[in-house]
Computed example of a mutant assay.
Amino acid sequence: MNLPKEQPRSLLRRAGDVVVDTAPVPEPGPGQVLIEVAAVGVCGSDVHYFDHGRIADFVVEEPLVLGHEASGVIRAVGAGVPADRVGQRVALEPQQTCGRCTQCLTGRYNLCPDVEFFATPPVHGAFARYVVLAAHRAHPVPDTLSDEAAALIEPLSVGVWAARKAAIEPGDRVLITGAGPVGLLCADVARARGAAWVAVSDAVGHRLEVARQRGAHQVIDAIAGPLTDSLEPVDVIIECSGAAPAVRSAFEVAAPAARIVLVGLGAPNLELPVAEIQIKELVVTGTFRYANCYPAAIALAASGAVDLDGLVTGRFGLDQVAEALQASKTDPQSLKPVVYPGR
């Protein structure tokens, strides 16, 4: 196909200020593919950059294209990439790593010190018509998956990684704290891995109802009282809210030898009950994105074990990115707005 020379993109110039401008269509280098972006989910990190212009030490110092939960179609390939990949529908794993450091060579490429991740300053993201990506990070998806579902393979991979870190086994009792999109997907993956019982807590009633509809065995109003009033001890806690009270409550309901996985980003420092961790031999770990999760996430979505389309609550064109980024404030039932750069 004849590709255009210029493309539209949504650019965050500063906190609260996004505009549509044009930029050259990038050319794929060796080992890369050019992808026409079909759909992009709005992540909480995109919203945080829009609201505050930074996340921790990552500061928007120059205009930045947001968006990293993306799907699309390969339109051109660089040297060394088979030509038959052109036309392939893909889910984008939005990162480039060095492939040579200790972390990469041991399979933990999410911890590569030189990682370049979409929509993390200064790396541009996918709120654009075209992007380039390493070919091995463009994962083919079956035609049974919609463009929206293919885009949401990215947050589903967060759930797969959390479940692996938690070592969820058949028969486990699991608690998910936080019923945003990632928390809901963590609950889905826990059930898919054979958890016998999955509870979800949150302070928002609508999100708890969504969790119930998606198969949670119990939903808990996080502000109604201590979790210990509602729960027997659990084997696994996956904390997705980032709220300090939720982190502390995880230890209160942890069974001996429970695994606690911290997914949500909150306060940089918290006081933890070290004596309880030692006496109960609790395993406490964090997560940072994911590694080697896309094939499993695609398989879960394609099999019907996880419903990704059901998370989508709003659809926006490239000139409506500001509305998409503010959807959680304007619509109390918003879960996952999706941007379509081609509209």
Results as ranks from 00 to 15, higher is better:
Val86Ala: 03
Gly87Arg: 02
Gly87Asn: 05
Gln88Tyr: 07
Arg89Thr: 08
Arg89Phe: 07
Arg89Leu: 09
Ala91Cys: 12
Ala91Phe: 12
Leu92Val: 15
Leu92Tyr: 10
Leu92Ser: 06
Leu92Met: 14
Glu93Asp: 10
Pro94Lys: 00
Pro94Tyr: 03
Gln95Lys: 14
Gln95Ile: 15
Gln95Thr: 15
Gln95Leu: 15
Gln96Arg: 13
Thr97Cys: 04
Thr97Gln: 01
Cys98Phe: 07
Cys98Thr: 10
Cys98Ile: 10
Gly99His: 15
Gly99Arg: 15
Gly99Asn: 14
Gly99Tyr: 15
Arg100Ser: 08
Arg100Asn: 07
Cys101Met: 11
Cys101Asp: 09
Thr102Tyr: 11
Gln103Val: 08
Gln103Tyr: 13
Gln103Ala: 14
Gln103Leu: 12
Gln103Gly: 05
Gln103Ser: 14
Cys104Leu: 10
Cys104Pro: 09
Cys104Gly: 07
Leu105His: 08
Arg108Thr: 10
Arg108Gly: 04
Arg108Tyr: 11
Arg108Ser: 10
Tyr109Ala: 03
Asn110Ile: 04
Asn110Asp: 03
Leu111Gly: 11
Cys112Arg: 00
Cys112Asn: 07
Pro113Val: 13
Asp114Gly: 03
Asp114Lys: 05
Val115Leu: 04
Val115Phe: 03
Glu116Ile: 06
Glu116Ala: 12
Phe117Arg: 06
Phe118Ser: 05
Ala119Phe: 12
Ala119Thr: 11
Thr120Ile: 14
Thr120Arg: 10
Thr120Asn: 13
Thr120Asp: 08
Pro121Cys: 12
Pro121Ile: 11
Pro122Lys: 13
Pro122Phe: 15
Val123His: 12
Val123Met: 07
His124Lys: 11
Gly125Thr: 00
Gly125Cys: 03
Ala126Gln: 05
Ala126Glu: 08
Ala126Tyr: 03
Ala126Pro: 06
Phe127Glu: 03
Phe127Asp: 02
Phe127Ile: 01
Ala128Glu: 07
Ala128Val: 04
Ala128Lys: 04
Arg129Val: 11
Arg129Cys: 06
Arg129Ile: 08
Tyr130Ser: 04
Val131Tyr: 02
Val131Asp: 05
Val131Ser: 04
Val131Arg: 02
Val132Trp: 05
Val132Asp: 11
Leu133Gly: 00
Ala134Asn: 14
Ala134Ser: 13
Ala135Gly: 05
Ala135Met: 05
His136Ala: 11
Arg137Ile: 14
Arg137Val: 13
His139Cys: 03
Val141Cys: 00
Pro142Asn: 05
Pro142Val: 02
Pro142Arg: 02
Pro142Ser: 04
Pro142Glu: 06
Pro142Ile: 02
Thr144Ile: 10
Thr144Arg: 12
Leu145Glu: 08
Leu145Gly: 08
Leu145Val: 12
Leu145Pro: 08
Ser146Leu: 09
Ser146Ile: 11
Glu148Ala: 05
Glu148Asn: 07
Ala149Val: 01
Ala151Leu: 01
Leu152Cys: 02
Leu152Gly: 00
